[in-house]
């Protein structure tokens, strides 16, 4: 399978990349890791006239803690997340997620920014971002714009990114003491999209009262979904078995899975319930 013809540029700076986006508008696509875009181009689901390859732009790949945030450069590869010491010790939710994304070769190419900017509810990082209440930085001709994750995903493959903007950074509020997080997806085999996936971040105070709950769901809605009622069911309460069961039940009711090859709607709701419960427990165990 060979993609339809296109023009190709590999700018050396972000400014040049944005100038190219300004010039070509909707006809251009950004090429990051390429492991969602190139397969879509081979299947002719996407036929951009221009590809702007941002792999040669320095300074877009980093993992650092700064100003109360964990900042991740958009071009950071999944394999770099997997191997990062900061991530492994303080944000194990990313290690959980990265390990389950495709396979080692794909993770050598795939980027966290691409995983989010693609706007696919089946991708794994969006649910993690919802659980961590992240922000994404979009860089355009007027400079940078910070977008809260809840305002980022619009619809099927639709995001708040404008045609002349590039997602350049992800910002996660730094976790304090008493916080744990976890992600898991049910997949039929390595490399498959989630039948259902759940990301959870939980914080509790010294009395065992839940002070923060973030729960994001993968591939059970047209967009990545925040399980808002589940979060409300947890905050301000002790995390008893009943409280957690109520939160899990709410998520299974509020998601909108469709019956497909991976299972029936009923089965997926049931898996959401199971996974929400397990991820709350796993996140709590990691505190």
């Amino acid at each position: 399978m060979i993609p339809a013809p296109f023009e190709y540029d590999a700018p050396a700076t972000l400014d040049e990349a944005i100038a190219l986006l300004e010039k070509h508008g909707d006809e251009a696509k950004i090429l990051a890791g390429g492991h969602s875009l190139i397969p879509m181009m081979k299947l002719r689901f996407a036929s951009p006239e221009h590809l702007i390859d941002i792999n040669n732009i320095p300074g877009l790949s980093y993992i650092k803690e700064e100003d109360g945030y964990l900042k991740i450069g958009a071009m950071t590869r999944e394999s770099e997340l997997e191997e990062s010491e900061i991530i492994r010790s303080k944000y194990p939710i990313f290690t959980d997620a990265s390990k389950l994304i495709a396979d080692p070769q794909v993770r050598n190419m795939g980027t966290i920014g691409g995983n989010i900017a693609h706007g696919d509810a089946a991708n794994d990082h969006p649910a993690v971002m919802l659980a961590l209440k992240a922000e994404v930085v979009a860089t355009g001709p007027g400079g940078q714009r910070v977008i809260p994750i809840d305002e980022f995903f619009y619809g099927f493959y639709m995001t708040a990114l404008q045609p002349n903007e590039i997602l350049t950074e992800i910002r996660i509020p730094s976790v304090g003491a008493g916080t744990g997080n976890a992600y898991h997806k049910l997949e039929r085999k390595v490399g498959d999209y989630a039948t259902a996936g759940v990301a959870a971040q939980i914080a509790v105070d010294a009395d065992g009262i839940c002070t923060y709950a973030g729960i994001g769901l993968t591939n059970v809605n047209a967009t990545p979904l925040r399980a808002a009622r589940s979060e409300e069911a947890l905050v301000g309460k002790k995390l008893t078995e009943e409280t957690i069961a109520a939160a899990a039940q709410a998520a299974s009711e509020d998601c909108n899975p469709s019956t497909d090859l991976r299972g029936s709607e009923e089965y997926k709701r049931s898996m959401v319930r199971v996974l929400v419960k397990r991820m709350i427990n796993k996140a709590t165990d990691r505190i």
Partner: peptide
């Protein structure tokens, strides 16, 4: 290690 069916030669 990468899968060469999903990388452009020009890259």
């Amino acid at each position: 290690s990468i899968k060469s069916c999903t990388m452009l030669a020009i890259q």
